[in-house]
Design a protein around this nucleic acid. Structure first.
Lengths: 209, 209
DNA sequence: TTCAAATGTGAGGAATTGCTCACATTATAG
DNA sequence: CTATAATGTGAGCAATTCCTCACATTTGAA
């Protein structure tokens, strides 16, 4: 039940302060990666960052603010990758969709556990303006891409494709899958099927459970 | 000296004890539905159930045991619905898949928030034997259904279809969607596309965001 | 009726944890 | 150099929460 606002308490002005903030974020990411949200306590973050708990609370007003910052970073990268995928190369729906799906998967490849933990935590976070804007933009890119082609409801299709991709990727990552090319091929097949662009020529990839 | 070994979880033998257990489960479901996992505290559950905290711990050794029991119930229903869907009616892949997807959606329709909260909590739970077995059986039904038809890797396809369905349904429920027929049509379209059974005749449903 | 087993009670122990605050140290402007 | 702002420290408060335990009450069989 998100309700309270989230904004950084103090902006670091000196180099050492920026280093402190960076250390805190790095420590939080490490803890999230290896222990999940339940392991993320402010005292532990401060300890692992080599910083006092007081310093942590000078830059992050609440524990959720740390999570929100990490989530913002992730979304920024995701948006950036999606924009590149949407613009580059041929503009036919099939290849563009394929590239955008690969971009969506890529945003999990670097640190799958971290991404999973952050996304699981998202529903408990009061999102700030930038995070909301990022979400809107990500959705808008999908909608825009699908709008350039004949589709009855691009907005609905964008929603569904994002959900479909997210669901398959999350489950695969959770199951320990790491063959991203294989995964991308399967997700693409479902997405193109949804769009009535069936890919008869595609080979069905082998199992990897 | 009667000092019988006390099992961590007592089995209720009298009617009032069964009523107590039922009240606890009902209270837990209510709290999960309206406040999510974070709101679920043992003291609150006991209070809402009109039962003392001590009574609660006579039948549930830990807080997680309550969650596990509710999850077991949900999975049992899901499995039951899936079995019915798999057996009944025509056995061509398209209609069977459609029925099974509808069954998977149905398992969210009765109490969407509860289902969402339980599934979110699942990854934090040490699953017991029955829950594991239920998961295996659910997966097996999908695999068996897909195996009766020409598919290169039924197990992989089962995994992907379940993930795809789960992802789309979860996101739709989260967005407040309640038009299950519309949702079922879209999920089915993606699933049949994945299976290379494109549904050209299907109408694309209207938006509902 | 009698009594042991089953069931119910709730105050509080013990542990965790988010966060504050009074104070120390370091950097920078004038 | 000095004064002020920026930064860093960590003991510990306050709140939460899981769960225990000593005891009370109810039930059912003999």
């Amino acid at each position: 039940m998100p309700s309270a606002p989230i904004s950084p308490r103090k902006t670091p002005r000196q180099a050492r302060a920026r280093a402190t903030v960076a250390a805190i974020e790095e420590a939080a990411a490490h803890i999230l990666t290896h222990g999940g949200v339940d392991a993320l306590t402010t005292n532990l973050v401060a300890a692992r960052a080599g910083v006092s708990i007081g310093s942590l609370y000078q830059y992050f007003p609440t524990k959720e603010a740390i999570l929100a910052e990490l989530l913002r970073k992730l979304r920024r990268e995701h948006l950036h990758d999606l924009e590149r995928a949407a613009q580059q190369g041929g503009d036919d729906l099939r290849s563009t969709t394929t590239r955008m799906i690969r971009a969506s998967i890529a945003h999990h490849t670097e640190a799958p556990e971290l991404a999973r933990a952050l996304e699981a935590a998202e529903s408990h976070l009061p999102l700030d303006a930038e995070s909301e804007a990022l979400k809107t933009q990500i959705s808008a890119i999908w909608t825009a891409t699908l709008s350039t082609h004949a589709l009855p409801d691009p907005s609905q299709a964008a929603f569904d494709l994002a959900a479909l991709t997210h669901g398959m990727v999350t489950r695969a990552v959770q199951a320990g899958e790491r063959d991203w090319d294989n995964l991308a091929a399967r997700v693409t097949r479902a997405a193109l099927g949804y769009l009535h662009l069936c890919t008869q020529d595609d080979h069905q990839p082998t199992q990897q459970p």
